[in-house]
């Protein structure tokens, strides 16, 4: 079985979000970069678990990014995975990125392609669906459980206010949400091994981006909290009803 896991680099969850160049660029000054949590904790770790059950499986990782994405893909290799691709391109357009991943995936004939449910920076939730369409494969998004029996996958996905169990035969593209696996910490052996694992850098295929960022902004700051004494809950209810009109 061949598994491809899509890895994205994102700012740390505690990073302060500011913009430069007249609000057209994310200010990366002092930002710590991490593997997008959904890609790491759920997609990659589930792939590693599948390989632990079936040692004949191979795991390839892919990221689309510049040289600054290399520490992230090495960190992912330290967790697990046999080899990695980096497509040497920088883009914020989901279709452009998905096209690069699909081009590599086509060559590799993977049985399972895993992505995180979204990245925590652009929140597009788009890569998995686009890759699936470009490869004409079935797609299950927001999976919180993934079990494999031969070539049949049983997947639980989130739906509004509940969950749904579905079955599908490989090959399939799946986006991973919380619940699919538990976060792991890379160990020293993994970190050492990652240094010598193959990391292939390829140039991007020619694709037109479909969207572009015009500008960024920050939400308006809150006016400040109105504190109500703990022994006057009626006043809070009055404010919520009459002033905020929220109840």
């Amino acid at each position: 079985m061949k598994i491809l896991v899509c890895i994205s680099k994102t700012p740390d969850t505690t990073a302060k979000i500011t913009f430069t160049d007249n609000n057209t660029k994310f200010d990366t000054n002092g930002v710590q970069w991490i593997i997008n949590p959904y890609d790491e904790w759920y997609a990659l770790v589930r792939a590693i678990e599948l390989k632990e059950k079936d040692p004949s499986a191979t795991i390839h990782l892919i990221t689309v990014g510049g040289a600054d994405a290399e520490p992230i893909i090495r960190k992912a290799l330290a967790l697990g995975g046999d080899e990695a691709f980096r497509v040497n391109a920088d883009s914020h357009d989901s279709f452009y990125i998905a096209s690069q991943i699909a081009a590599i995936a086509k060559e590799g004939a993977y049985d399972l392609i895993l992505t995180g449910k979204e990245t925590i920076d652009y929140n597009g939730s788009s890569i998995g669906g686009m890759v699936a369409e470009l490869l004409d494969l079935p797609y299950i998004s927001l999976a919180s459980k993934f079990e494999l029996d031969g070539s049949k996958a049983t997947i639980i996905r989130e739906i509004e206010g509940g969950e749904e169990t579905a079955e599908v035969n490989l090959p399939v593209v799946v986006s991973a949400a919380k619940g699919m696996a538990e976060q792991r910490i890379p160990n020293m052996r993994g970190i050492m091994a990652a240094r010598t694992k193959p990391l292939k850098v390829t140039e991007p295929i020619a694709v037109e981006a479909l969207t572009s960022v015009t500008s960024f902004g920050l939400p308006p700051a809150k006016a400040g909290v109105k504190l109500v004494p703990a022994d006057n809950v009626d006043e809070l209810v009055r404010l919520l009803h009459e002033e905020a009109k929220a109840i």
Binding site: S94, S125, R157
Partner: peptide
């Protein structure tokens, strides 16, 4: 929503139509 997130990206790739999600 959950279903929109499954379908909209596929349709975007199929029609080569730019997608803004969220």
């Amino acid at each position: 929503n959950m279903d929109g997130k499954s379908i909209a990206p596929r349709l975007s790739a199929r029609l080569k139509a730019g997608l803004i999600s969220g």
